[in-house]
Amino acid sequence: MVQKSRNGGVYPGPSGEKKLKVGFVGLDPGAPDSTRDGALLIAGSEAPKRGSILSKPRAGGAGAGKPPKRNAFYRKLQNFLYNVLERPRGWAFIYHAYVFLLVFSCLVLSVFSTIKEYEKSSEGALYILEIVTIVVFGVEYFVRIWAAGCCCRYRGWRGRLKFARKPFCVIDIMVLIASIAVLAAGSQGNVFATSALRSLRFLQILRMIRMDRRGGTWKLLGSVVYAHSKELVTAWYIGFLCLILASFLVYLAEKGENDHFDTYADALWWGLITLTTIGYGDKYPQTWNGRLLAATFTLIGVSFFALPAGILGSGFALKVQEQHRQKHFEKRRNPAAGLIQSAWRFYATNLSRTDLHSTWQYYERTVTVPMYSSQTQTYGASRLIPPLNQLELLRNLKSKSGLAFRKDPPPEPSPSKGSPCRGPLCGCCPGRSSQKVSLKDRVFSSPRGVAAKGKGSPQAQTVRRSPSADQSLEDSPSKVPKSWSFGDRSRARQAFRIKGAASRQNSEEASL
């Protein structure tokens, strides 16, 4: 019999049943779409005989028809080659250093092939080196495509196609095609072959870009420019304004007297070369007005044109410092986490200390709560409330009815002989401070409620009492009544008793 458990639990079988086999339907690529829901599959020993999904071999995947050992070796080799080519560490840098020397040698020989004295001697060596480079780069490109299958997102032919569309893979295939075209054109020995050789060798310069396949330098440059984009835009904007204004004023001053400034384009060329401190010297002002304007705008514009270099330099320094700090933080993070875990385990398992309490023990206690009866409008029989619902239920009951529930009420002091009981919340009678006064009792026990209740009776009109401690106690149990005489010590004692009862009640409510 096959059962599914969608909550991750395992159904224990009877003692008479045989052992169960467990598997996940959602992990089987050969299962139909209706059953690939991630549910837990529990099947008996007879299920494989019936041809269940556990008995079927995997229909898809890279190692579907391969033995386990061969499949493990296949995956291990794939991961190894992918890490060597895409994430070089340790001795893997030897291969990348060899590729760099190969590319650099091709670049140097290409430069010498353009010089007439070394053209014949360098062409033969360059031809052999180009063949070696094409073979190495071609094999490396196909190995990269194959090894990318170790990543989940690059599996299958669609994943390989996605990997081949990456920018550096596109550069690799462009350089490979250009190198093959250069060799094919150079072997023909005609004029067209020579011109094609010179034009296609430009694409071989892109080999130097592939040295940084992970794009660390470009990411660093982009992060620095993005972090200081506002400062760079401000400096370039002001420098551009200085360039336009200086070129226009010098053009007006030199026009008609200097042949170097016949057009405004000549003035812009002079301004750009001057403000960037290049100074070719092919154009320069000759009149005193033009020289004065050139000197003034040079002092202003050079500072703004040189400002981005300082901004980028400081940004690079701060970014490198931040990377070093992050690297040290990552080195200290795992030991710190292990130290915290060890300290907590020692703290939680220390049996010699009796003052340690688990944080979840508070929620494991069961509280007896009286249940409210809507018919009699009273609190009758009580029941046990689950631990997770205790706090919310108690808050709702307290807010609606005004009752305070507590588990172990402390012993109440008995009323003394000299001070009789003053009210239901005086704190001297046991069992009276455990409940709050309802809204109805407060209204009818207050002086205003009594006056409103007995407004029509003649006794209420004739008998008038001065405010005393009895009425103030019933009005607000948490307030201290004001004494009408300064020498009345009994009223002071009563006030301290009320304060103590109120503080105890607040602490009990907070504990609930």
Rank of each mutant, 00 (worst) to 15 (best):
Met1Lys: 06
Met1Val: 02
Met1Thr: 03
Gly8Ser: 15
Gly9Asp: 15
Ser55Cys: 14
Ala62Val: 13
Asn79Lys: 15
Leu81Pro: 03
Leu85Arg: 04
His96Pro: 14
His96Asn: 11
Leu101His: 04
Phe104Ser: 13
Leu107Phe: 14
Ser113Phe: 11
Thr114Ala: 10
Thr114Ile: 09
Glu119Gly: 13
Ser122Leu: 12
Tyr127Cys: 07
Glu130Lys: 03
Arg144Gln: 15
Arg144Gly: 10
Ala147Pro: 04
Tyr154Asp: 03
Gly159Glu: 09
Gly159Val: 04
Gly159Arg: 08
Lys162Arg: 13
Cys169Phe: 14
Asp172Gly: 04
Val175Leu: 15
Ala178Val: 14
Val182Met: 13
Ala185Thr: 15
Ala185Gly: 15
Gln188Lys: 15
Gly189Val: 10
Asn190His: 13
Asn190Ser: 15
Ala193Val: 11
Ala193Asp: 05
Thr194Ile: 12
Ser195Pro: 14
Ser195Cys: 09
Ala196Val: 12
Leu197Pro: 14
Arg198Gln: 14
Ser199Arg: 09
Leu200Pro: 10
Arg201His: 14
Leu203Pro: 12
Gln204Arg: 01
Gln204His: 13
Ile205Val: 11
Leu206Arg: 01
Leu206Pro: 06
Arg207Gln: 07
Arg207Trp: 10
Met208Val: 12
Ile209Thr: 11
Arg210Cys: 07
Arg210His: 10
Arg210Pro: 07
Met211Arg: 04
Met211Val: 11
Asp212Gly: 15
Asp212Ala: 05
Asp212Glu: 13
Asp212Val: 01
Arg213Gln: 10
Arg213Trp: 10
Arg214Pro: 09
Arg214Gln: 12
Arg214Trp: 11
Gly215Arg: 06
Gly215Glu: 05
Thr217Ile: 08
Thr217Asn: 02
Thr217Pro: 12
Lys219Asn: 08
Leu221Arg: 01
Gly222Asp: 08
Ser223Pro: 00
Val225Ile: 15
Val225Phe: 11
Val225Asp: 03
His228Tyr: 12
His228Gln: 03
Lys230Gln: 14
Lys230Met: 07
Glu231Gly: 00
Glu231Gln: 02
Glu231Asp: 00
Thr234Pro: 05
Ala235Val: 06
Tyr237Cys: 05
Ile238Leu: 15
Gly239Arg: 05
Cys242Gly: 06
Leu243Val: 14
Leu243Phe: 10
Ser247Pro: 03
Ser247Trp: 04
Ser247Leu: 05
Phe248Ser: 13
Leu249Pro: 02
Val250Ala: 04
Val250Gly: 01
Val250Leu: 09
Ala253Ser: 12
Ala253Thr: 09
Glu254Asp: 03
Lys255Arg: 08
Gly256Arg: 05
Asn258Tyr: 00
Asn258Ser: 08
Asp259Tyr: 09
Asp259Asn: 13
Asp259Gly: 09
His260Tyr: 12
His260Pro: 02
Phe261Ile: 13
Phe261Cys: 02
Thr263Ala: 10
Thr263Ile: 04
Tyr264Asn: 00
Ala265Pro: 08
Ala265Thr: 05
Ala265Val: 07
Asp266Gly: 05
Asp266Glu: 06
Ala267Thr: 05
Leu268Phe: 09
Leu268Pro: 02
Trp269Leu: 02
Trp269Cys: 00
Gly271Val: 01
Gly271Arg: 01
Ile273Met: 00
Ile273Asn: 01
Thr274Met: 05
Thr276Asn: 07
Thr276Ile: 05
Thr277Ser: 11
Ile278Asn: 00
Ile278Thr: 01
Ile278Phe: 04
Gly279Asp: 02
Gly279Cys: 01
Tyr280His: 01
Tyr280Cys: 02
Gly281Glu: 00
Gly281Arg: 01
Gly281Trp: 08
Asp282Asn: 00
Asp282Val: 01
Lys283Arg: 13
Lys283Glu: 06
Tyr284Asp: 06
Tyr284Cys: 09
Pro285His: 03
Pro285Ser: 04
Pro285Leu: 03
Thr287Asn: 00
Gly290Ser: 03
Gly290Val: 00
Gly290Asp: 03
Arg291Ser: 00
Leu292Pro: 04
Leu293Pro: 04
Ala294Gly: 14
Ala294Val: 06
Thr296Pro: 06
Gly301Asp: 05
Gly301Ser: 08
Phe304Cys: 03
Phe304Ser: 04
Phe305Leu: 07
Ala306Val: 08
Ala306Thr: 12
Ala306Pro: 03
Leu307Pro: 03
Ala309Val: 13
Ile311Asn: 02
Leu312Ser: 02
Gly313Glu: 06
Ser314Pro: 06
Gly315Arg: 02
Ala317Thr: 07
Leu318Val: 07
Lys319Arg: 01
Val320Ile: 13
Glu322Gly: 09
Arg325Gly: 07
His328Asn: 01
Phe329Ser: 08
Lys331Thr: 04
Arg332Gly: 06
Arg333Trp: 11
Arg333Gln: 11
Pro335Ala: 00
Pro335Ser: 07
Pro335Leu: 05
Ala337Thr: 09
Ala337Val: 10
Ala337Gly: 07
Leu339Arg: 02
Leu339Gln: 00
Ile340Met: 08
Ile340Thr: 02
Gln341Arg: 06
Gln341His: 06
Ser342Leu: 09
Ala343Ser: 10
Trp344Arg: 07
Thr349Ile: 11
Asn350Lys: 12
Asn350Ile: 10
Asn350His: 12
Leu351Phe: 13
Leu351Val: 12
Ser352Pro: 14
Arg353Gly: 07
Arg353His: 10
Asp355Val: 09
Asp355Glu: 11
Leu356Val: 11
Leu356Arg: 10
Ser358Phe: 11
Thr359Ala: 08
Thr359Lys: 08
Trp360Cys: 04
Tyr362Cys: 12
Thr378Ile: 15
Pro386Ser: 15
Leu388Phe: 14
Pro411Leu: 12
Gly418Val: 14
Pro420Leu: 15
Pro430Ser: 08
